Amino acid sequence: MPARIVSAALIATTFSLSPAFAANQTVPASAEGQIEFNAPSGNIGCIYMPKGGTSTYQPRDGGPELSCSRVEPSYVTVILGPNGPATLIKNPGEQGCCSDVTKLQYGNSWSKGPFSCQSSTKGLSCSGSNGHGFFLSKAKATAK
């Protein structure tokens, strides 16, 4: 077998075994429609609330709502609703984050309702269909 054919076969096999990049990752919802996911690092955790909320929590403006918290180096929470800019809370008081839930793998995206997030080794970037959003990483927390 010529070396060119062997090399082509080796390259094709290598790429077919590699994980897909930039895949839209599905994250299961609770019975009430709430969705939780974390960054693979375990430093960022997010909760999506459907429109109308759940039996235990209703978003301030009726929802839907995306809330993400970063643990280190300081605890911050960002809340994005369907209207207006994201709200960055630098000292949210409560500090429960990042339970053992689905990890939004690096390179993957997630979307539900008006929200979408992209996970990368640089951090988590999320936006709403209204053009507002936020970025969270260990080094940075911004909201627009």
Rank of each mutant, 00 (worst) to 15 (best):
N43D: 13
Y48M: 09
S41E: 12
I11F: 09
Q34S: 11
G84D: 01
S137E: 14
T13V: 11
P85R: 11
R4M: 08
T77K: 13
S67E: 09
F135C: 14
P85A: 12
K90R: 15
G131T: 02
K103V: 13
G93W: 05
P50W: 02
G81P: 01
A141Q: 05
S74F: 10
V27H: 01
T121M: 14
S99I: 10
K144L: 05
G45A: 12
C98R: 09
S125G: 11
A139P: 08
G62R: 03
C126H: 02
P2Y: 12
T121N: 14
P59Y: 00
F37A: 07
N130W: 02
N91L: 10
A22E: 07
Q25L: 04
L124D: 00
T142C: 06
Q105F: 12
S120V: 07
E36G: 08
Y57G: 00
F115W: 03
G128K: 01
G63M: 00
S129C: 05
G33I: 01
P50M: 00
P59I: 00
T54S: 06
V101H: 09
K90C: 00
D61L: 06
L17P: 05
P40R: 07
C97L: 15
S30C: 07
A3R: 11
I35H: 01
E36V: 06
T87S: 12
S125K: 12
P50Q: 04
P59M: 02
G53T: 00
N108C: 08
I79W: 02
E94W: 05
G113Q: 03
A12I: 13
G128S: 13
S127K: 08
L80S: 03
P28D: 06
L80T: 00
A143M: 04
S30F: 05
P40Y: 04
C98L: 04
P59Q: 02
P64K: 01
L17D: 07
T102V: 10
A139K: 15
I44G: 03
E65D: 05
K112V: 08
G96E: 11
A23Y: 15
Y57W: 13
